[in-house]
Design a binder for these strands. Structure first.
Length: 336
DNA sequence: AAATTTTGCAACCGCGAAGGT
DNA sequence: GACCTTCGCGGTTGCAAAATT
């Protein structure tokens, strides 16, 4: 009971489309529309499978498509929607006028996934890696936890060594060039502060693992209370300084100007400078609920895309229904 | 400058849903 | 209601261009 192939494979051309083929397809569709994809290649004089024609049209030739780089706002939208609906690329693309599901999928796979990973966020769950580890740790018996801690530290060993070595080298360079004020190394005090992160990583990792009680019992990112927020990891984990919920801070600058300036903001934003407090978390939670309603009900464009990643972003604190339903509703409406 | 690796993107594949008969 | 066809989606692959060694 095999499925009938959509076309005779022997007689069909595959691979890259030529400009002539594009022209044929475009002009045919301009005249006759996209009624029956199976007939289109035949009628348009193309040796292509109907499916291939549809793909070429929807992903490339359609006149309403955008072809340039993704904007920061678009990236933020993708990340936000992906955290809610997962790999539902068509749903996500429906929120981005001129973008196809293929575009969004490719951009996610080639860029955004790496960017998120670089900030310590698991691109699948959108939770911080440290948090996932801590969560795993709560389910393990103490001996297993100890092994996990060892393994985890082993994973980060190279990065830690790199940081520590770099710090030593920078320090030595500064010592040996005391008169050069124009060097590019970070002033020692600041560098020292930055590299405290290594110790803080170790400290918080071991604390998280050895004292599972310090973690909330349930998923803190789904909690609306302040209990599970800053208090637990407070004390300056350099990686997620605002503790469990600190990773909500996809600051607007985090997505902008990738690679520009001194270090990617993507790689720094999650690790430095957040000042979010538990109080802010509560306030921002309430605020975001309103924002989401407005964003998804108001149309395709997100009115203030930068808000997605500023301190108001408390995605994980929102009951999933609040987010998912408006999106599905919207996507559904768009399909009508 | 050449070889190798990585990246980005277009295209393909198979599956399931939707629609028509 | 069963069957068939078409469409749309998400995962994967292939390849050219860019970056790195």
């Amino acid at each position: 009971m095999g499925r009938i192939p959509c076309c005779e494979k022997d007689n069909v051309k595959r691979g890259q489309w030529t400009p002539e083929e594009d022209n044929k397809l475009s002009s045919y569709i301009a005249q006759h529309g996209t009624r029956n994809w199976r007939l289109i290649p035949k009628n348009a004089g193309l040796q292509r499978c109907g499916k291939s024609c549809r793909l070429r049209w929807t992903n490339y030739l359609r006149p309403d498509l955008k072809h340039g780089q993704f904007s920061d706002a678009e990236e933020q939208t993708i990340v936000k929607l992906h955290s809610v609906v997962g790999n539902r690329w068509s749903l996500i693309a429906a929120q981005l006028p001129g973008r196809t599901d293929n575009d969004v999928k490719n951009h996610w796979n080639t860029k955004l996934k790496k960017k998120l990973s670089g900030t310590g966020i698991d691109p699948v769950t959108h939770k911080p890696f440290s948090h996932l580890m801590a969560e795993i740790a709560t389910t393990l018996a103490p001996p297993q936890v100890a092994h996990l801690a060892e393994a985890a530290l082993g994973c980060f060993k190279d990065e830690m060594l790199h940081l520590l070595t770099k710090k030593r080298i920078d320090f030595q360079l500064q010592q040996s060039n005391p008169g050069q004020g124009n060097n590019t190394t970070v002033p020692y005090s600041k560098q020292d502060e930055k590299d405290d992160t290594v110790e803080k990583i170790k400290l918080n990792l071991s604390r998280a693992i050895q004292e599972p009680d310090m973690l909330p019992l349930n998923k803190p990112w789904e909690s609306t209370s302040t209990r599970a927020t800053s208090a637990n990891f407070e004390g300056g984990c350099g990686v997620f300084p605002t503790s469990v919920t600190g990773y909500h801070h996809y600051g607007p600058s985090s997505f902008a100007n990738e690679g520009g300036g001194s270090g990617s903001p993507w790689s720094q934003s999650m690790c430095t400078g957040s000042t979010c407090t538990a109080g802010e978390q509560v306030r921002s939670h309430e605020k975001l609920k309103d924002e989401n309603g407005e964003e998804f009900q108001g149309g395709k464009e997100i009115k203030n895309a930068t808000s997605i990643f500023n301190t108001d972003c408390v995605l994980w604190d929102i009951p999933s229904d609040d987010l998912i339903n408006p999106i599905y509703r919207e996507a559904f409406n768009n399909k009508e």
